[in-house]
């Protein structure tokens, strides 16, 4: 963590309004980019990002410099995103059971379907794919944020890959 960032966070924690404002400005783009990949569409991502900023204001005082600020921030955003997802009662009611085929629809719709499919695979899959494939992180970085083992992330991605190009042969066990 740079000296600069550490100082800004310290000042914001002590109640410096400008420092907090700068902190948000500096990180807004990162949060938004992640939110886009997690939610799959722009509008929801904006909502999530705003919620995350508000939450940052509330809980910045609890940041103890025990981990990298970005790691802590990602966790916070993921929590916000999960809460937001829960509040969406309809929860992607338009999901389809078939495996999405590229080129058939517009890419946003396709992405939405892929994310819905991944989400149904289990807890943590959606986050893993957004962090690794979406944000280009290594498995280790993603594992640190999600507070799981690196192998867990690798396994999740392996499962996702398998499910996305699955073409089961009768009688052949994979």
């Amino acid at each position: 963590m740079t000296q600069d960032l550490q100082e800004i966070i310290g000042r914001a924690q002590r109640g410096d309004r400008d420092a907090f404002s700068r902190l948000v400005e500096d990180h807004y783009a990162t949060i938004f980019r992640f939110a886009c990949r997690y939610c799959g569409n722009r509008q929801d991502a904006e909502d999530v990002t705003q919620q995350a900023c508000i939450k940052l204001a509330r809980s910045l005082a609890q940041f103890r410099f025990e981990s990298a600020f970005s790691t802590w921030l990602y966790r916070l955003v993921i929590n916000c995103a999960r809460d937001w997802l829960k509040s969406q009662c309809k929860r992607e009611s338009d999901e389809l059971d078939e495996i999405p085929v590229p080129g058939k629809q517009e890419s946003t719709v396709l992405l939405h379907q892929v994310i819905a499919l991944v989400d149904r695979m289990g807890e943590g899959f959606r986050e893993s794919v957004a962090l690794v494939l979406g944000m280009g992180m290594t498995h280790a970085e993603a594992a640190a944020i999600l507070e799981v083992k690196e192998s867990t992330v690798s396994w999740r991605l392996h499962e996702i890959r398998k499910r996305l190009n699955d073409q089961v042969q009768p009688g052949v066990e994979r």
Partner: peptide, 10 residues
């Protein structure tokens, strides 16, 4: 959107 979020946060 960014400024709205920032204002809300502030």
């Amino acid at each position: 959107a960014q400024s709205r979020a920032l204002n809300a946060a502030l």
